[in-house]
């Protein structure tokens, strides 16, 4: 379990992290969301022991930072922002070096390296120098490095940045398939990632925690939660009649589609169907939305 208790980090006059408290249990995949400069990366640097907090305490599976820093670092696999690596090393040399620092020797070391090379599909670039690799490969080398010791805690700062959709899919698959007793913390800008991966989302803005919820709970906070979008095949102008339905707060019309936002908890799906029947409108498309994360993101962080 990871536990942050009233953690703050001050850089001169700037408070990057402000009284942040939360805990994460084994098995959770925590998404870390927030605008640029909100303190996501700083918080991750504090959890990995790279930065010491100005105040507050951090505990990782019973080890408190910074006192037991070395023991804590052994449990963590970390992909820093931008996946830095020594460009002059080969993928093979780099991964072996990391494995050795993680305490593996000889055959065991080679076995660990082989395993991550296989799961991240790095075989074809195994002998290549890291600085000659594409962005996607570099990112995967960074992930391989973080996974090499099968860590209990995995901290990934924008793990899919720079990957193409296929690679993103594979990396997400990989993270999802990690064994269930791990803690995974992911920071991301990509909101679809939250739905695809995370069991919980923490949103921070200006270093403060603004929301701690499951993706579904977040979606429910959206104005578009349970919004109904409808398109009619007949050429009509239904806007006025739709507006008159009870509980409709706003209608957005675009490309012949009408999106009806309603008061919380009152979906207007049935009402729309009824109205269409009464008026003899042919429905070409009708669906209900779960909510839009980008909308919630804006609402909470601005």
């Amino acid at each position: 379990m990871i536990k942050l208790d009233q953690v703050s980090k001050q850089f001169g006059p700037f408070r990057a992290v402000d009284n942040l408290s939360f805990s994460v249990s084994a098995g959770e995949v925590l998404g870390f969301l927030g605008p640029n400069g909100a303190g996501k990366t700083t918080t991750m640097k504090i959890i990995t022991g790279f930065l010491a907090p100005t105040s507050g305490s951090i505990e990782l599976f019973g080890q408190s930072l910074p006192k037991d820093g070395l023991k804590a670092k052994e449990m963590i696999g970390y992909l820093p922002e931008g996946a830095p690596a020594w460009g002059d090393m080969s993928v093979c040399g780099f991964l072996r070096f990391i494995a050795e620092l993680r305490g593996y020797k000889g055959a065991q070391r080679d076995e660990r390296v082989a395993q991550v090379v296989e799961s991240l599909e790095l075989t074809q670039v195994f002998e290549r120098t890291i600085e000659t690799l594409s962005k996607g490969f570099k990112r995967r080398v960074g992930l391989a490095q973080a996974l090499i010791h099968d860590p209990k805690i995995l901290i990934l700062d924008e793990p899919t940045d720079g990957l193409d959709p296929n690679q993103k899919f594979k990396v997400r698959e990989l993270i999802r398939n990690l064994s269930k007793d791990k803690i995974v913390i992911i920071s991301t800008h990509i909101l679809e990632e939250v739905n695809a991966l995370c069991s919980r989302v923490i949103m921070i803005a200006d270093g403060k925690l603004v929301s701690d919820a499951t993706p579904a709970e977040l979606e429910a906070q959206s104005d578009y939660h349970q919004a109904v979008t409808v398109r009619f095949s007949s050429a009509i102008d239904p806007q006025q009649k739709l507006q008159q339905l009870s509980n409709v707060t706003r209608i957005e019309a675009a490309d012949g589609c009408f999106t009806l936002l309603s008061t919380p908890g009152n979906s207007v799906l049935e009402d729309v169907k009824q109205l269409a029947e009464q008026e003899n409108w042919d429905i070409a498309e009708l669906y209900i939305e779960k909510g839009r994360l980008d909308d919630v993101f804006r609402k909470l962080t601005t």
Binding site: K45, T48, G49, F50, L70, K73, E74, I76, Y78, P80, P84, A85, W86, I98, L101, R102, G103, Q145
Partner: peptide
Amino acid sequence: TVELLLTLP
């Protein structure tokens, strides 16, 4: 890479 190096044990 300093961040990588110093977050290794």
